[in-house]
């Protein structure tokens, strides 16, 4: 499987790239953190996936114009964030990774204040802060001091603060960190809703594959300071299409018939995976049907092969 991170034409999903990076490099002292990062981030919800220490937070810092790139070019909304920092940041909502927030301030006051800092007039800031907290499920809790809130609630406060000023782009650094599974599901659903219904483009950094897989339209995978795969999730998965058949009996005969017919077959116990590119998937299904019928097999399960992001990730990092 070959996955190409751009260079090449920008990934276009209904609009121009929100973020465009060309050969971006960044290091601290002698240690390079990002090397030759070249990627276009299309509108929608994008997962920035990478192990801890792979450079995700540094990349977000560059997008915010908090650091300058050492080399290459970076554009957010078509602007250089290091030079037009104020204009770029005014339209970005950012929720940092840490959960530290001023403990003695009410959630509503905090969100309102940050909306004002992003340029909203006081009256608007107040009403939008209240709305944002309701949208994030903290309407009833909005007058509580942040210090009395659980980690899950603080994550929501950070999210509310990030959307209150109606940003064009939302940068979420590990937004499910510290959440239990139920809270994580709720948070991911909320992020999907923000991306789909609110019309805000989202970049979500995470080290959890399934999280990105469940939430995002696009993915970029960072490893060792490089983008090793980038593009729409559906496209990245396409590299591993075909048919998977799990058999009650007759696996040997079915496999033999498929091989005979010229298909590439992988076997894992009673499960056969027939590789086929998407154009030939229907033919692969027919071939499996014929092989099972001819070989006297009995099917337990039959489904199209869809590579998980983990396969993409492992394939790209291999």
């Amino acid at each position: 499987m070959v996955i190409q991170a751009a260079p090449g034409p920008p990934v276009a999903l209904g609009g121009p790239a929100v973020i465009a990076a060309r050969g971006v490099a960044k290091g601290y002292g002698a240690a390079p953190v990002l090397r030759d990062v070249t990627v276009d981030v299309a509108p929608g919800v994008t997962g920035l996936l990478g192990a801890n220490g792979s450079g995700k937070t540094t990349f977000i810092g560059l997008l915010l114009g908090l650091h300058r790139v050492d080399g290459g070019e970076l554009r957010v909304f078509g602007l250089d964030p290091a030079r037009n920092g104020a204009a770029v940041r005014a339209r970005i909502g950012y929720a940092p990774e840490h959960h530290r927030l001023p403990p003695d301030i009410q959630a509503l006051d905090l969100v309102r204040h940050l909306a004002e800092v992003h340029g909203l007039p006081p009256r608007e800031a107040m009403s939008r802060a209240s709305d944002a907290l309701w949208q994030c499920g903290l309407g009833e809790e909005r007058l509580r001091p942040v210090g009395t809130m659980s980690t899950g609630q603080r994550q929501r406060v950070k999210l509310a603060a990030a959307i209150a000023h109606d940003p064009r782009l939302l940068l979420l650094d590990e937004p499910t960190d510290g959440l239990d599974p139920a809270q994580r599901d709720a948070m991911l659903a909320l992020i999907r809703r923000i991306g789909r219904e609110f019309g805000i483009d989202v970049v979500l950094s995470s080290h959890l594959l399934d999280e990105v897989e469940r939430t995002c339209d696009n993915v970029m995978i960072l490893a060792g300071g490089r983008i090793i795969a980038a593009g729409p999730l559906a496209e990245l998965r396409r590299g591993a299409s075909g048919v998977v058949v799990e058999l009650e009996r007759g696996a040997d005969a079915v496999q033999a018939r498929l091989l005979q017919a010229g298909w590439v077959v992988q076997r894992d116990g009673a499960r056969l995976t027939v590789a086929a590119d998407p154009a030939h998937e229907a033919a692969a299904f027919d071939a499996v049907r014929d092989a099972v019928a001819g070989g006297g097999g009995a099917i337990r399960r039959l489904h199209p092969r869809r590579a998980s992001l983990e396969e993409v990730f492992l394939g790209a990092t291999a």
Partner: peptide, 12 residues
Amino acid sequence: TGMLGLYLSGPL
């Protein structure tokens, strides 16, 4: 309290 990061991620 981490407010500095939130401030500097705005126009300031």
